[in-house]
């Protein structure tokens, strides 16, 4: 149902939530991302696929403010957005769950969840009690088994750490969510939990960029998939229009069989 919603919003020519236009970035002599364009609509999940070093994570880090693009433009809700730092991205309600989770291992769950955006008392001191209470609330929803609120996150399991990273993105009312390999380190049960959460967030109208190596998982979770190779965009297809084999050949061969099969 959500899938059809996002499709109609897209087909009706609505404004995309995010539009990346001709984004390029080079590191030294390497063109890591080469004139890539991509868009994302409300309530839509767009998957990014490709080999390691294809440029997926780099592209996504430009949107999340971790890297600065060399050229191209970013539009949020149809308006030009200047994203030069992670703080800028947060102002546009862009939240990112990094593959490394980006947690400070020595701090507890609440400190990590609110890192950079601490709740403070009227005197300007950090309000640890209120932050822990908020953390307990949101984690009760995301991961009811979570108990270790007063221990550093280094004492948590992979799934629990993931819960903290996800809670951080969800708590601050993200409109645009970027998830870099969110299930790579998780067990079966926890992977299912993330999949359910993605459906829930989608239904709330968030736009989600998902990066993964697992083609089958992407076919299940995404509305559209984009494949990158050597910094270039090979193609973006709706999942119901392609087979897993089509996607694999795009990843491996860097060609879009779907487009080539249809004579121009």
């Amino acid at each position: 149902m959500t899938r059809t919603q996002s499709q109609t919003s897209r087909q009706a020519g609505g404004t995309p939530l995010v539009e990346l236009r001709d984004i390029s970035i080079a590191f030294g002599g390497v063109q890591a991302v080469d004139r890539v364009s991509l868009d994302l609509y409300p309530g839509e999940v767009v998957g990014l696929l490709g080999h390691n070093g294809a440029g997926k994570s780099t592209l996504i880090k430009i949107l999340s403010g971790a890297y600065r693009k060399d050229s191209g433009e970013i539009l949020i809700n149809g308006e030009r957005a200047e994203i030069d730092s992670p703080a800028d991205a947060r102002r546009y309600n862009i939240e990112t769950i990094y593959q490394t989770l980006a947690l400070a291992d020595n701090l507890d769950a609440a400190s990590n969840l609110f890192l950079g955006r601490e709740l403070t008392t009227p005197l300007g001191f950090v309000d640890d009690a209120r932050m822990e209470a908020e953390t307990r609330k949101i984690l009760a929803r995301l991961n009811p088994n979570f108990r270790k609120f007063s221990e550093p996150v280094s004492a948590l399991s992979g799934g629990q750490r993931q819960s903290v990273a996800i809670a951080r993105a969800v708590y601050f009312n993200a409109k645009i969510l970027i998830m870099d390999e969110p299930t790579a380190a998780l067990g079966v049960h926890e992977t299912k939990m993330v999949a359910d959460l993605i459906q829930e967030l989608k239904a709330q109208g968030l736009g989600i960029f998902l990066i993964s190596h697992d083609t089958r998982e992407m076919m299940e979770l995404c509305d559209r998939v984009s494949v990158m190779k050597n910094g270039q965009m090979i193609g973006t297809e709706r999942v119901e229009d392609v087979t897993e084999d089509d996607i694999l050949s795009m990843i491996i061969m860097g060609r879009n069989p779907k487009r080539e099969a249809v004579p121009a």
Binding site: P86, T96, T100, L101, L103, L115, G116, R117
Partner: peptide, 27 residues
């Protein structure tokens, strides 16, 4: 007080725990 009750102190610990994460959190 600075280390336990202010943002500054929190960021000192965060940078020590994971400099990259601190940077990505906008510190």
């Amino acid at each position: 007080v600075v280390m336990r009750m202010t943002r500054f102190g929190r960021y000192v610990y965060a940078i020590g725990g994971n400099p990259e994460a601190a940077e990505l959190a906008g510190i």
